[in-house]
């Protein structure tokens, strides 16, 4: 009896390991945290981009409107690519676009907006990148669709045609 238990359990263990590795293979190895979704938006204090006045986040994100929080910087190339989509979205009536200017110089950022037009309804400053961390962001660009103080959708990397359509659908 004892001699049978050992081989059988060995084979079962090896098979289980096989199944787990097999399943593991199908998981994406690019890490995208799910925890960002359906979470309350963080509370923070930051300077406004133009006036350098200090704002609280509550003052900006009010109740039941849709907001698109976009982290951008003039030195980030993908930000240029997504800019036309932001401009497109800025025509949406029920959506406000809030920018978070990440580790940027005011002069460069202003030039960037003058050159490509300004889609933002309001811009915060994040000179040392710590506010982006409050949002659980990895870098630039990154966007969060907000509704009723909750994060509805998180887009890591530039917005593209697909995510544009998705956002439009969500805010309907």
């Amino acid at each position: 009896m004892r001699t049978k238990i050992f081989p059988i359990s060995l084979i079962i263990i090896v098979s289980v390991i096989f199944v787990i590795f097999y399943k593991g293979l199908q998981n994406s190895n690019v890490y995208e945290p799910q925890i960002g979704n359906q979470k309350n938006i963080p509370v923070f204090i930051a300077k406004a981009f133009e006036t350098e006045e200090i704002f609280k986040s509550e003052d900006i994100f009010e109740g039941d409107k849709f907001y698109l929080m976009n982290i951008w910087s003039s030195w980030c190339a993908p930000c240029r690519d997504e800019h036309k989509f932001l401009l497109n979205l800025s025509n949406q009536k029920n959506l406000k676009i809030i920018g978070l200017n990440y580790k940027d110089k005011k002069k460069n950022a202003t030039n960037f907006l003058n050159e490509l037009n300004n889609p933002y309804d309001f811009i915060f400053n994040d000179t040392d990148g710590t506010i982006a961390i409050e949002w659980g962001a990895y870098g630039v660009p990154e966007s969060f669709l907000l509704h009723k103080n909750k994060i509805v959708k998180k887009i890591i990397g530039p917005i593209d045609q697909n995510s544009l359509l998705e956002i439009k659908e969500l805010i309907q």
Partner: peptide, 28 residues
């Protein structure tokens, strides 16, 4: 590509699956 690591070879699930099956054939 099942693990995150400094060294990344091109990830291709088909390759992973092949090595996995081969590995377990040898083990069995």
């Amino acid at each position: 590509g099942i693990l995150n690591s400094v060294h990344t070879f091109a990830n291709d699930p088909e390759r992973g699956l092949y090595i996995l099956i081969f590995l377990f054939i040898l083990v069995f």
